[in-house]
Every structure is written in structure tokens, then in C-alpha cells.
Design a protein around this nucleic acid. Structure first.
Lengths: 215, 215
DNA sequence: TCATATGGTGACGGATAACTCACAAAGTGA
DNA sequence: TCACTTTGTGAGTTATCCGTCACCATATGA
């Protein structure tokens, strides 16, 4: 009982809670918040409706718990990637790789996450989207700071670092969307993204002479 | 009566229909499909509920009509841009410019459009998202063909043209999202996008020597 | 002026779904 | 075995909202 610091009861409670969340995740990601009823979640998770309300005070609360889990998982893994050792390019590469990996491993979560962050998040009245957006914002800023440092070092071209961060995220998100829609149609990987984005943004030494205006 | 080919009645009918659509657009883009009731649309458009059903057979139908309008507007303007004269780079630049312009001029539409295409489109049972996605798909393919041609001409690097199209769209979408969230915070324009994307993807003559692997 | 048609109305029916609560079952400890 | 607590139950309550339909009002035309 001491090895995990939680009593059997507590662990059971958490297991049940987790089971409900898993079922809810599946359903929400398949059909969307408004097209899933508490009865449906109850049935599929083999609990009674009333039981759900012992775990979550209402439907929105359940949804929020789910989204928080997602957000935290993604956030911590991306932040960790940005904190790896190495130069700025390596950090960013690690970040793209981490993103693809976590996202690929949690496609149901991604579907929900994107619905909330990219599509307008109409599912929850307030608070949640703010939290998630702040967390996302924090990540983008950290990424921008890496770009900034890379620019100062002369590694990258002098674009607005924040916009570079957005652009890079935009590319990787685009590929992820594509993957969600057509999983096997257009294979891609982190290297590809890095190549498209950096092969030309990345700048060192003799590349300078390539800076002729293109337009 | 002949100058417009429509009777006064017919014109009034269309005007009323358009008024309803405008109100619905505003509401849907603010609160999402499920958080807007027909009563609300009725009230704000100063028609009775029953009247709405004279124009649209149900709520979903109203929403579809709206989305079709959007989709067609965006689609035709993007396709037109891709069909302009000029080399591949110019076509693509025209396309990015057109996209930014139409989207900026119709931010309410964009919010809805993105909710339907990027977030999972759970608002409508079937058919609509398929149509929109097919239309989007058609555009991406045409864009990819332009890339393909540019690659064959030696203008662009040898990436998978379809993936390039996705990446470019990803970047411009990312900026648009950003703009929707924080309209004045991080100004950007088509040139910036083109620069980030092409300054290094764009390839000619002496740029060849820059092709050293970056990673 | 009156009959008819058309566009417009909004109270109402019916269905669905979130949420409650009185109760049952299972577990616990003596 | 028995009292008591905890966990789980699901029929029922309440509220919302879609969609209808019997009914106005205005316009048109004879």
C-alpha cells in the first residue's frame, strides 16, 4: 500500500476514472462533443449514468479533464524536446520529431486537440480553451526564443522569430491533418519537414550569396 | 424586370434569404453550430421561426448553404489565382495573395470554414464535409501540379509536389489562425510567407551549391 | 370591394439529453 | 452475523430546441 502511496481503493477509483476517460476520448474524437451523450459514454464504459457524475460534475467537466490531459501530455513532451542539449537547429529538430511521435501515438487525442485549438473551440464555455491556448502560447514563445538565439548566432535568417515558430508549427500541423484524413496516402517524417523548412532557412557561411531577392 | 431576369418577388426572396444567411453566419462563427438555435437566428434576423423553414428545410440545410457559399467563394478565387499567367513562382505567389485577401475580407467565413475543414467537422452528418474536402483536395492537387511543373523546370527543389502544396497551405493557414486569435499582434503578408517558404526552396542557377545536407 | 394567393407568424408537440436522487449492492470491520 | 459506509444504479425530472401547422396580413387582380 505504501509502494504507490495510494490505497487500493484510491487506485481503483483512478482506474475507473481512467476507463471512463478512455471511452469518452474515443467517442468524442469520433463524433464530437455535442454528438456524444452521457448515456452513450455510460453504456460503453459499463457504468451507469449516475456513476459518471460521481467522477465528473458534468459533461463539460469530463471533457475538460480529457483536454487537460492531452494538453499536458503534448506540452511537456514538446517543452522537453526544446530543452535538449545541442545547437538551435538540433533543438528544433528534436522538437519536430517529438511532436510527430507524440501526436502519431495519440491520434484520437490529436483529433480532439486540433478541434479545440485550430477549429474554433465551441465545445466548452470558457476557461479550457484559454488554458490550452496559454499552454500553446508558452510553447510557441519558447520555440521562438530558440529561433531568436539561432538568428543571433547567424544560424538562421533574420525573420521575425515568432512568425518562424508559427510557420514551422503550421507545416507540421498541416502534415498531421493530412495524416488524420488519409493515414497512408502521403508518408512524411520529421526530416522532410526540417528539410522543407530549413534547407533554405538554415543559413551558414557560403549560403549568404543565395540571398538574392526571389520576388 | 428584365434587366436582372428576376421578378421583384424573386429578388426579395433572395434578399431575405441572404439576410438570414448573414445573421446565421455571424452567430455560427461566434458560437458554433450547436450553440446557436433556430430561435436565435429568427430573432436576430427579425423573421419568425416558421419563416426560416420556408427558406431552408432544416438547420443543417441552412448551415450547408452557408458552407457551400464559403467553399465556392474560396475555391473559385484560389483556382483563379492559380490560373494567372506567369511562371510557377508567380502563380503560387498570386495564389497566396489571393488566399490572404479573400480570407481577410471574410474572417467570419474563415472561422467557420476552418472549423469545418481543420477541426473535425462534426456539425453536419454527411455530405457537406465531403464536398468541401473534395473541393479543397482539387485545389491542393492543382497547386501540386504547379509545383510539379516548377520542379521539372528546375525552378524548385525536388520535393514531393503534393507535400509541398500541403506545406505551403500549412504555413498560410497558421498565419491566418494567428490572425484570427490576435488580429493585430503579429502582422504578416503574402511576401513574408513566400519569403519563408521560397527564399530557400526556390532554386536556380548558382543556388545549387547550397544543397549541402543541413542535418 | 371582395376573393384568392403568397409570404410571414409563433404557440405548440415531440424528442432528446443533461442531470438528480432515492435506492440497491458490495464491501468493511467488529 | 450485523450495522454501517461506500460505490454504483437507472428511472424520472427538467429544460432545451428542432420542426410543424393552423392561422394572419398584405398584396394582387378581377
Amino acid at each position: 500500500m505504501e509502494k504507490s502511496k495510494l490505497s487500493r481503493k484510491e487506485r481503483e477509483y483512478l482506474r475507473h476514472r481512467q476507463e471512463i476517460l478512455q471511452v469518452a476520448l474515443k467517442l468524442f474524437s469520433e463524433k464530437g462533443f455535442h454528438n456524444v451523450s452521457m448515456h452513450e459514454i455510460a453504456k460503453k464504459s459499463e457504468f451507469a449514468v449516475g456513476t459518471l457524475y460521481k467522477f465528473f460534475s458534468n459533461k463539460e467537466d469530463l471533457y475538460k479533464a480529457l483536454m487537460l490531459e492531452v494538453s499536458n501530455m503534448f506540452h511537456s513532451s514538446l517543452m522537453a524536446a526544446l530543452a535538449t542539449s545541442g545547437n538551435e537547429l538540433e533543438k528544433i529538430k528534436a522538437c519536430v520529431e517529438a511532436k510527430l511521435k507524440v501526436f502519431m501515438d495519440n491520434l484520437d487525442y490529436v483529433r480532439l486537440y486540433l478541434a479545440e485549438t485550430r477549429g474554433a473551440g465551441f465545445n466548452v464555455k470558457a476557461g479550457l480553451d484559454t488554458d490550452i491556448k496559454m499552454s500553446y502560447e508558452e510553447f510557441v514563445k519558447k520555440l521562438a526564443r530558440v529561433f531568436e538565439k539561432g538568428i543571433k548566432k547567424g544560424l538562421f535568417k533574420k525573420f521575425d522569430s515568432y512568425l518562424l515558430a508559427i510557420a514551422l508549427n503550421g507545416i507540421s500541423n498541416a502534415f498531421l491533418f493530412q495524416h488524420l484524413e488519409y493515414p497512408d496516402a502521403h508518408p512524411f517524417d520529421a526530416d522532410l519537414i526540417i528539410n522543407i523548412f530549413f534547407h533554405r532557412v538554415y543559413e551558414k557561411g557560403e549560403m549568404e550569396k543565395c540571398n538574392t531577392k526571389t520576388v
